[in-house]
């Protein structure tokens, strides 16, 4: 039996994401850069969207997050190892709160990709060439609408079509609406108690 009063309801399937893109070039962009640590001195995630890349934006007026042509973008296009470093969920929280619904990149840190999935924001992995093409296209024509299909991983933007992938479990979670797993984790709690009772360090040596 679940110890909780009610199982949470799933947040609804995510099957397709579409919107304008923002090309953020660079490798190994860590979560300290996405959300500098001083903005973590708070007890809620509220307002984090105001501090995305704050230090990078101040240091470089030409930073793509300062470029008003990309206002209203909802799909971030990045290069390798995006979101590395600190496990702070404040980074994807800031992006989701700023209106981002998906990220397309060459590769992601595992923790960042998982944290993003928990917020309903898929991180698609595409090839270096495809990401560069997409970045070039949206840099030139920011009004281009990108459409990403969760099931197939197909991403279209203008005349460009590319194949991207999501880890299968995350993909299926988005499609079924079970991307927030708490309900599943609480569904069969007797089994949880059984596993706990079998562990010698829980039971007592």
């Amino acid at each position: 039996m679940s110890p909780q009063p009610q199982a949470p309801s799933p947040m609804g399937p995510v099957c397709q994401v579409s919107g304008r893109g923002l090309p953020l070039k660079g490798h190994d962009i860590d979560t300290d850069r996405i959300m500098p640590a001083r903005f973590l001195v708070a007890v809620s995630f509220e307002g984090l969207e105001q501090h995305l890349f704050e230090d990078d934006r101040k240091a470089d007026p030409g930073h793509v997050f300062n470029d008003t042509r990309f206002n209203g973008a909802s799909i971030l296009v990045v290069n390798t190892n995006f979101g590395c470093g600190s496990s702070r969920e404040h980074a994807p929280q800031g992006l989701v709160r700023a209106g981002y619904r998906a990220i397309v990149g060459e590769s992601f840190s595992e923790i960042f990709q998982g944290n993003s999935a928990m917020l309903g924001m898929p991180c698609f992995v595409a090839s270096h060439e495809d990401v560069e093409r997409l970045q070039t296209l949206i840099a030139k024509t920011p009004e281009t609408v990108i459409a990403a299909d969760i099931a197939s991983g197909a991403i279209t933007a203008g005349s460009l079509t590319l194949n991207a992938v999501l880890p299968p479990a995350l993909r299926d979670g988005f499609l079924s609406g079970q991307w927030n797993p708490t309900a599943m984790l609480l569904a069969d709690f007797d089994q949880v108690r059984n596993v706990a009772a079998r562990l010698p360090y829980v039971r007592g040596f």
């Binding site: 994807p92 998982g114 708490t182």
Partner: peptide, 8 residues
């Protein structure tokens, strides 16, 4: 883990 997982 992230905060949503801390919740879990």
């Amino acid at each position: 883990i992230g905060t949503s997982q801390v919740r879990d």
